[in-house]
């Protein structure tokens, strides 16, 4: 198993390198940020000076080489806009995004699985049908629209929840977090539900389909025949067997939640990485864009690895090994 993990991590280095090359080239093709950063009253000499200050006067391969050398030393460059190390900027925003991502993961698991199993066990009941209809809405409504509706309803009309932003943070295990206070939770609630909506629906559908399939299996019949209580049948025999697809999907989705919380963070003015990346793209802040995407790629690789390991824990038949050609 350790060989498997080491090999996976080595492969990831290659993937990250290719990624950096693609992003670097891509952003270079779009242009440079000088015309947006510079004050319009600057003359040609000032513009040239700014281009030099950001190192944009060098040919692209030289810029990339310089980036690569520094990256190997752990320096992914400094933001053109903030003049701070890109990595530091991103990591400073990470707790906010993580908080949101975990809150939405929590919501999708603790509401999605029971609701899905209920719908699977009672497919013809009104509740079961309503759950399924609801999940279709969760899939199909665009999240920025839902977000704005949430704000209109809960913040503007009812006035019970804040319209956006993050509450005052406190230090917890060396990180700045906001979920330890009521105020913090009230700020997280709307964006977390908004972000969870899609995954919640996904989990409901997966659990329902899984439940309907598993419930007719021989081992369930056998368990029942053996006199195992219904509660144990459902909570152990059914639940454990529907978890594999749910874990896979949630694992992959968790990555994309962190990576692409962009919409929710923008709508709710949540100061996370997604808001940072969208603003950086807007301003072509290349060091931040490159560093962000490299981090995201790395994260996806790690999550995939964790999912594979969890797999083998949940299903002892799975052996961790590379697929050989």
């Amino acid at each position: 198993m350790s060989v498997f993990i080491i090999r996976r991590l080595l492969q990831s280095v290659v993937v990250i390198w290719v990624m950096s090359l693609l992003v670097f080239g891509g952003v270079y093709l779009i242009g440079d940020p000088i015309d947006m950063l510079i004050n319009p009253e600057a003359d040609q000499e000032d513009i040239d000076a700014a281009i030099r200050a950001l190192g944009l006067d060098k040919p692209i391969h030289e810029q990339y080489w310089f980036f690569l050398i520094n990256a190997l030393k752990g320096d992914l460059g400094s933001s053109f806009i903030f003049n701070e190390p890109a990595l530091q900027l991103i990591l400073a925003r990470m707790p906010a995004t993580m908080e949101l991502a975990f809150a939405s993961l929590f919501i999708s698991i603790f509401f999605g699985i029971p609701l899905g199993m209920w719908a699977g066990l009672h497919p013809e009941s009104i509740a079961g049908r309503s759950i399924m209809t609801g999940s279709i809405l969760g899939f199909s409504l665009p999240s920025f629209w839902v977000g704005i509706m949430f704000i209109m309803f809960f913040a503007v009309i009812l006035g019970v929840l804040p319209s956006g932003g993050r509450a005052e943070t406190t230090e917890f295990l060396g990180m700045q977090v906001s979920f330890l206070s009521w105020d913090g939770l009230s700020h997280i609630l709307l964006p977390a539900v908004n972000l969870a909506l899609f995954k919640l629906s996904l989990v409901i559908r997966l659990s329902r389909a899984g439940t309907q399939e598993v419930i007719h299996q021989d081992y369930i019949k056998f368990a029942r025949a053996k006199g195992v209580s219904e509660k144990r049948v459902i909570l152990v025999h059914v639940l454990k067997n529907i978890l594999i697809p749910v874990v896979t999907i949630l694992g992959l989705e968790f990555g994309s939640v962190i990576a692409f919380a962009v919409v929710t963070e923008t709508v709710f003015a949540w100061p996370g990485m997604g808001k940072l990346i969208i603003e950086s793209i807007d301003q072509l802040d290349r060091p931040v864009i490159v560093a962000y995407l490299m981090i995201i790629v790395f994260m996806f690789i790690v999550i995939n690895l964790v999912v594979d390991i969890l797999y083998s824990v949940l299903d002892p038949r799975v052996r961790l090994q590379d697929v050989k050609a």
């Binding site: 913040a155 006035g159 932003g165 923008t266 709710f268």
Partner: peptide, 18 residues
């Protein structure tokens, strides 16, 4: 000062009294 870059959210924050 609260940076709220999305215009509808900014207006909503105003309407909500935040």
């Amino acid at each position: 000062l609260k940076p709220i870059s999305s215009a509808p959210t900014r207006v909503a924050a105003m309407l909500a009294g935040d």
